[in-house]
Amino acid sequence: MRPFAYARAQSADAAIAAMAQDARAAFLAGGTNIVDLIKLDVAQPGTLIDIGALPLAAIEVATDGSVRIGALARMSDTADHTAVRSGAPCVAMALNLSASAQLRNMASIGGNVLQRTRCVYFRDVTQPCNKRQPGSGCSAIGGDDRKMAIFGANDRCIAVNPSDFSVAMLTTDATIHLRGPAGERTTPFLGFQRLPDDPALDTNIVRGELITAISFMPTALTRNSTYLKVRDRASYEFALVSVAAALDVRNGTIHDARVALGGVAHAPWRARAAEAALIGKPAVRATFAAAADAELRAAKPQRLNGFKVVMAKNAMVRALGTLGGAA
């Protein structure tokens, strides 16, 4: 751990301006990720700009019915909010299955989306890592790759995104609201988190930008959703594999579907092949199994994680089965 300066921002604009003053500055919200990374020497910020006091914690329902989650809303408050629980049950479930109660009471929603991978090679500064030190190589490849990606990886990075919330949000066509030196902008949640074409970049955030909110519109589809998380122990662990699924079933036929996988890629993995295999088909187990097969066909497991393919397939069938149709 290196010494760093600490500053408390009084406004979003002041925080953004402060960021421009120090090329090694970083924002501090709940602190549940960056403080870890500072202790591990992975992050060496010059200044920590504490945005905790900014008025960005509200969770509001707009007149058009859309739900806007302030970036500083705690994971626990978000999970407990009626609009979230009814509008996108899988989001509340994903949050409640994340971390521990203590961490959920500290961690912010914006920070959750920006949290860095738990790859043990990334978190050990003695090991080469393209994400930490571009060009140094990926030591996870050929190493202990049990928890690594089965989709979208390349020869530069096989790490996975640890966020449960982000996986669930992919069922909602959500929007991320940002404010930065160039003003405000919005961007679709899907695609905000990147595959590792450039492993140093986790997301499409621009330096100096602050996430201010995440919004989504509840629909018949998002209201019928679930989240299934599979892990080595019963609680307090990141997913080996997780599934967020939403189904709009009308008269036994799947009218619309969203499926996303966690623990399998550098970003939450939207299962488009599965969705295509679901829509228009009867909501029965055979459909779910065919959809899971369709998605996992493209999986490329590492040396030690072939089991994730089977696990993901079975988890998808299980999750879809709880949403409707005959089991």
């Binding site: 738990r118 043990v120 090679y121 050990d124 090991q127 202990d144 080595d232 122990r233 662990e237 990141f238």
Partner: peptide, 11 residues
């Protein structure tokens, strides 16, 4: 090197 050298990864 033992790579799961934390109570996060040593279960």
């Amino acid at each position: 090197r033992y790579m799961n050298a934390s109570l996060e990864n040593y279960l």
